[in-house]
Amino acid sequence: MSGLIAFWNILKKDIRNYYLKPPNISWGIIFPLSWTLMQIIRSPGDLDIMELLPGLMGMSVLFGTTSMLAVTITFERKGRSFERLLLAPIGLNTLVLAKISGAVMFGIFNAFVPLVLASFLTDLSGINWTLVILGVFLVAVSSTLLGLMVAVSVQEVFEAQTLSNFFRFPMLFLCGLFVPIERLPAILKPLSFCLPLTYGTDILRASILGSSLMNRYLSIFMMFVFIGILFYLSRRNINRKWIL
């Protein structure tokens, strides 16, 4: 019960202090919005909104979660308020879950911005909503954990952003967000399958387009495997680097 009280209050504090701040809300809307508009302006005639949606949603989640979590944790560590959490009698698992939950929710919110926009432009009735929600959730959790790995490794906010970009931008091209994996050079394909977002995007493609590169159950399974590995690594790194 006491762990639950701590968990809920850490999450509530993060949502109030960071995620519900006007600049972050507007960033969460403007970023996916501008990517969507950019695609519409680039190909005004032959644009297939449905084809574009999985990539836009995946990218919005990836950038939203990794940016926010890496920044909030680095910010709290620099101000030493994070020490307060480490000194509290709550387990590291509870602490990690509480810290990532806010970013996961923020990522889910980000993902639905392109979807809401698309609803004005095309018919979304064919979408498998259960699978969309599951896909968005899994992408949000895995991306958040990537952001946590970055946050554990750096000291400064700018370092967090720089390091995040090292994996975020290659992932845009390697994970089938805008360039189908089938069309990638053969040498890069194995790399794609080592990245969680590839499987997340494939789940989103299956849910929105009804077709996917891999079996949807395999993709869901792989996402859980990646999440488990990333959670374990983040927790181990926190234990190593923050409790010296």
Partner: peptide, 10 residues
């Protein structure tokens, strides 16, 4: 209140 919540206080 937040600090107290970290110790499981209602």
């Amino acid at each position: 209140c937040f600090c107290a919540s970290l110790y499981g206080i209602g």
